[in-house]
Amino acid sequence: MPNENAIVGRIVRVERDERGHTVELQGGRRARLDATRENAALARVLEGLGARRRPVYLEVDPAGDTVRRVLLPVVSRVEAVRALDDGGLEVRLEVAQARLAIRRDAPDAAEMERLVLDAEQTGRVLLVTADEAQNVVDVRVFTPDPEGPVPPFPGDAEPPPRVPWALEPLRWLVDFLRDLWYWLWPWRWWRGCISKARAQQVFDAMAATTCDPLTVPPPCIPFLYPDDGCWARAHEMCRLMLGMHLTPRKVWIDGSLHTPTKNNPSCFVNWGWHVAPTLCVRGPGFFRRRRMVIDPALFTAPVTEATWKSVQGDPNATLTDTDWTQFWHGGGPDDAAYTNTNYYLDVYRDALQLRAAQQGTPPYANCP
């Protein structure tokens, strides 16, 4: 059964008194925040989460219902489950890049495993809560709030159009003519690619949009929360690049990724995939060009796709280049109106602000 010391639901109100703050959730359950400076900041974050009708996970001290920690559940279907070497389960969610783990010795491990395995088969939507090390601490069936936001999910991916089999032998001719066009019209190369200096300027412009962890004012991009949300960050960066009259694409990486970072208190993140925008950059040499990755969540400058891959902990990971319009991992409908982009940017701004209120602002000094 679920942890009796955990409350999961929407915050109804946060009230201040001489002893601190009282947090009331749906169903009338209450919890307390003691009167400290840190808890005053946390209370403001909880008020904001309540105003946005975001579900929260509150873990309380059973002796007095004092809040010990607050986490944000992920609302998602289960994409895949696999056994871990330690006897636990790895869980991949449909709308998350993180690789979550249900540890064998976790409280309620058997019940959490039952729920995710059932959801994998039935497509049921769950509320899944994980800690800073991406270990699952709570799993519940998601019941939509009639007054709350409906999380967007990817639709069924449309298969790419196939070339008729009779035209397959002509592919070499198409490739040859494309290459010939490129060499006969070098001005196209100059127009389509930018200089290394310009690429750094674009990178700096993207990095300048990073969120202040304590205030997270929209439309900032939460680069300092690397745990999840890369697809929304990448799409927003592409929108900004298009406004700069650039022609971005995206590169996706799939694998068992384990990426060191100073922006998570555990000093790493585990991903099943990751995505970032790319730009065509001239050089090295006059007649050469290459795609450079713009990823302020991992780097301080544009890097090659090989360098980008090398820091993510899986040499067997695969890279896939796509048009910038692909929003969801694996395909699905585009987000031309940026509605889903803005929804998930809001989610991970909240996650960053909540972490900063409890753990302090990144980067974390304990990380090498």
Results as ranks from 00 to 15, higher is better:
Thr304Met: 03
Met292His: 03
Thr325Asp: 11
Arg13Trp: 01
Asp314Pro: 10
Met292Val: 05
Cys211His: 10
Pro169Gly: 05
Pro265Asp: 01
Pro284Gly: 04
Phe286Asp: 08
Val91Thr: 13
Met244Arg: 10
Pro62Glu: 05
Arg355Phe: 06
Arg77Lys: 11
Val81Ala: 11
Leu71Pro: 02
Glu90Cys: 09
Pro144Trp: 08
Pro169Cys: 03
Tyr343Thr: 15
His245Cys: 06
Trp324Ala: 13
Pro159Gly: 05
Val128Ser: 05
Asp334Asn: 15
Leu93Cys: 12
Leu184Val: 08
Pro260Asn: 04
Leu345Tyr: 02
Gly332Trp: 00
Asp228Glu: 15
Val56Ser: 09
Leu184Arg: 13
Asp204Tyr: 07
Ala232Phe: 05
Tyr343Met: 12
Gln97Pro: 01
Gly255Gln: 11
Ala80Glu: 13
Gly9Ser: 07
Gly283Arg: 03
Lys196Asp: 11
Leu42Ser: 08
Arg69Cys: 04
Met244Trp: 06
Gly229Glu: 05
Glu168Asp: 13
Arg114Gln: 06
Ala232Ser: 14
Thr129Cys: 09
Gln353Met: 10
Ala41Trp: 04
Leu72Cys: 03
Trp271Cys: 01
Gln26Gly: 15
Leu42Ile: 04
Gly313Asp: 03
Lys309Asn: 02
Trp231Arg: 13
Tyr182Ile: 09
Val125Glu: 07
Val293Arg: 06
Asp228Val: 14
Arg171Ile: 09
Leu354Asn: 13
Asp314Phe: 08
Val137Ser: 04
Pro161Gln: 12
Val251Leu: 10
Pro154Arg: 03
Arg29Tyr: 03
Gln97Asp: 05
Arg289Pro: 00
Leu319Arg: 03
Pro152Thr: 07
Leu115Phe: 10
Val303Arg: 14
Asn5Thr: 05
Ser195Trp: 03
Val23Arg: 02
Ala205Cys: 04
Leu115Gly: 07
Thr259Ala: 10
Asp314Tyr: 10
Val163Trp: 09
Val216Ala: 10
Phe268Met: 08
Leu93Trp: 14
Asp335Ala: 06
Arg13Phe: 00
Arg13Ala: 11
Trp172Ile: 12
Val8Met: 12
Val91Phe: 13
Gly331Phe: 02
Pro217Thr: 07
Asn316Pro: 00
Val116Asn: 05
Ala234Gln: 01
Arg233Lys: 15
Thr339Ile: 15
Asn264Trp: 08
Gln201Gly: 04
Val8His: 02
Leu58Met: 09
Leu72Ile: 06
Phe153Glu: 15
Met292Gln: 11
Ser76Thr: 04
Gln312Met: 15
Ile11Phe: 04
Thr304Pro: 02
Ala301Trp: 07
Pro144Gly: 08
Ala35Tyr: 00
Thr278Tyr: 00
His274Lys: 04
Leu117Val: 00
Leu46Cys: 00
Arg140Tyr: 09
Leu224Gly: 11
Arg69Glu: 14
Leu214Tyr: 12
Thr210His: 12
Glu90Ile: 07
Asp350Cys: 15
Thr341Leu: 13
Leu117Asn: 05
